[in-house]
Design a binder for these strands. Structure first.
Lengths: 250, 250
DNA sequence: CGCTGTGTTGACAGGTCTCAATATAAGTGG
DNA sequence: CCACTTATATTGAGACCTGTCAACACAGCG
């Protein structure tokens, strides 16, 4: 298990060596997925979740008439496909945007953590809650802001997350998503996406050449986007293992 | 703890009496919240989650200029506010749409379940994943479908959920949300909401008088909405407690 | 070399928003 | 019980944002 993948798992809870080992043991060897490859398609039976070690992956829902909504972009360290564990058949399609490397985890092993490594299970629960906050923010952006603001909030969000895994220069980063992808994230047409980008470039908010994005003034762009920065709790006091487990309760 | 609240907690995993008791013990006595009352406002420090026993509650995000996006409607049996446990400060405001009754649970107690009642912790994880699926569906609806389809998918969704807790007649139910609320869920203007309702009524898809909604043909309405029904896994095989805990692993 | 995916631009149609006005219902204080 | 206020629902007209259709440039790739 690579360090970077690991750090993101531990950023909320510091896991000890034993706990890390237990988690590492349920991860399959790394599998490479080519750009555009499908890790798991919607409608398939749900047997695994995935740990993304390298690359970008989108999680999307395809509608009958062909419209696609990308509900989430995943970065290294993310656990993919967990939402569908409550379903008979997967809700989302996991697609590699860049060449990606993933570990596979069987659901059975995943839930064994609840007995064999409770703090790891708790850490994974917290990661799932982060995803939920991100989803709520995206829904708010799509439902209640203009397309320019949607793009702004998306770029700021990606900047924040890439900063957490040290893949962001001070204010610029590599964006492997096409304009079609971006449009499918923001709920607009690729054609309109192109115009929105042009607007945000001409107003000086962002620079974009090829796949390199530059956020000229992150703070101002964040305010423009209307969505707040989300600060995660770190090593929360309420998640310390009780001194003698299964003791004083109620 | 009332039976209805309980059934919803157990619909994915059958908890035994001891597990139910452990969960019941961390729940505060029922507190009543009046219609329009705020259970927890966004920006407040996160110290509790809540178990909804009775009534309807919305979870919403308020933007600086006053726009509101309702990201979720909660029904009895739902656990409220869990997404914000990873945040220093709450992301969503929990508002009682009707008079509601809630149990309060401290986060500390909530996470103790990871050591003291792993199956309960797992059950709560699964409930959170259901919320995530619902959020993904709503994002898809708002991002990629017309406002008429958004309303259709919302009504079908509510119909399905109310059916799970037996508060839905064959094809009609009581809807305590105002048109402003509905608009804030679907990401449109209340004025336009009114027109969309009129359209769906005139096309015969739904009936709506006062707060009573009737879905004239649920299946046809579901197809129109473009979103599939979500069937939850029940008593999944991968969630049986290992015969001898902490045994064969890896 | 043509093909396919991607980006770009224009003209126009259409869905949704804004502003304004009115009706109805519910709650309050007299 | 009535006048008054507030929340909610309803309708119209026009502006604006976004979608649709069409065309073209450009790149990577077999």
């Amino acid at each position: 298990l690579q360090r970077i993948t690991f750090n993101r798992l531990c950023d909320l809870i510091n896991l000890d060596q034993d706990e890390c080992d237990r988690f590492a043991r349920i991860c399959s060897p790394l599998a490479q997925v080519e750009r555009g490859g499908i890790i798991r398609a919607q409608g398939e039976e749900v047997e695994h979740v995935y740990l993304l070690a390298k690359g970008w992956v989108t999680s999307s829902i395809l509608l009958p008439e062909g419209e696609r909504q990308i509900v989430r972009v995943h970065l290294p360290g993310d656990v993919l496909g967990t939402a569908s564990v409550v379903l008979e058949t997967a809700a989302e399609t996991l697609t590699a945007v860049t060449t990606a490397e993933v570990h596979t985890i069987t659901i059975r092993d995943y839930f064994r953590l609840y007995w064999e490594a409770p703090r790891v299970a708790a850490a994974l629960f917290l990661k799932a809650q982060q995803e939920r906050v991100a989803l709520m923010d995206r829904l708010t952006a799509v439902g209640r802001t203009s397309s320019a603001r949607r793009l702004a909030s998306l770029l700021v969000h990606l900047h924040d997350r890439l900063g957490q895994i040290n893949q962001s220069g001070d204010n610029s980063f590599h964006l492997p998503l096409t304009q079609v992808d971006l449009a499918d994230m923001l709920g607009i047409t690729p054609i309109h996406m192109n115009r929105v980008i042009k607007t945000l470039k001409s107003t000086g908010f962002i620079g974009l050449s090829g796949s390199k994005v530059t956020l000229n003034d992150v703070q101002r762009l964040r305010e423009f986007s209307a969505l707040p920065q989300r600060d995660w709790v770190r090593q929360p006091a309420w998640l310390r293992e009780p001194v003698s487990a299964a003791s004083s309760m109620g």
